[in-house]
Amino acid sequence: MGGKMHRHHLFWPLVVLGALLLFNLIYSPDFFSLAVRGGNLYGSLIDILNFGAPLILVSIGMTIVIATGGIDLSVGSIVAISGAMACLTISKGTDPSSVLLVIGAVLASIALSIVLGMWNGALVTVTRIQPIIATLILMVAGRGIAQLITSGQIITVSNSNYEYIGAGSLASLPFSIFIVAAVLLIASLLTRRTAIGLFIESVGSNPEASRLAGLRSRTVILTVYVFCGLCAGIAGLILSSNVSSADGNNAGLWYELDAILAVVIGGTSLNGGRFYLMGTVIGALIIQTLTTTIYMIGVPPEITLVVKAFVVLAVCLIQSEAFRKTLITRWKKRNYPAEQEVTRHA
């Protein structure tokens, strides 16, 4: 049953991605061609993976948060803050090419992202604020903080070691792909090979029941927000290192929306519960492929937004149609008056 459901969830995202790639192949037959230049692989597919890396990372974190029934709107701001922090640390250093300085900058950014994730998690668990609002606070204030760090300027750094994170290559592939692969591997292992995944899905389905069953709901929720902050922080490093600069205002703009979109396309319900990491990765790839396609066929890039709008609607409708029966039964169950009575008095 589980396997069948899983296949079903991945089916539509894969069809959409396949259709997009097929369209590209028909439109430009050399879309799939890869060239080796200077020991590195080049090609549209590699570009999609490389430029999509930050989005995939943010979306992985977002999937886990959404699985617990939450949402994290602050990821875009964390992306900006993390990049700003790293670039500031590097620009303040005495020796701009030092490796230690880069490691220090990366650690500082990651530590800051974890703190920000903890802040979100604490708001959701301790003060019991709705996730959408709790993270809205950091989304609004975070842009300000990022600009505060960069003093409202765009900080440019020139450090070849730092550039390696986002623009370097390993085994003729962009280094960022390996970062994504590592995070994805760790996340899948932790959630699918240990009980953590079950905990997350259980908390997402019913936090109160999970607590009564002996699960530390709060710890689980706090952890997922920290993980999401961490993912956004790493994405911020890749993004800022790719362009060797930090822009507090525009870095990671709309990332939260793209990431949520990727998660939804991937088949994870915004209501929490079951989650699909691979579906999310495919969702993020669909978004990135869409952007690349639109650039390639020469339509003004501004139209991406319109296409995205229709993709969101189409995906939501497909999911709503296919799972109408389950949705309706779940809906009725959730709103069964006696159950509400129980939760009210719990």
């Binding site: 959408i132 939804v264 915004l270 003004p300 319109v306 296409v307 229709f310 809906w331």
Partner: peptide, 26 residues
């Protein structure tokens, strides 16, 4: 009617309206 979260539907609306602006003129 489709019981989709307001958040995601109005997000699509946001993309759509912003996109139409750019189609009219940038």
């Amino acid at each position: 009617y489709f019981k989709i979260q307001p958040f995601i539907v109005t997000l699509a609306g946001m993309f759509l309206a912003r996109g139409i602006c750019y189609i009219i003129s940038i």
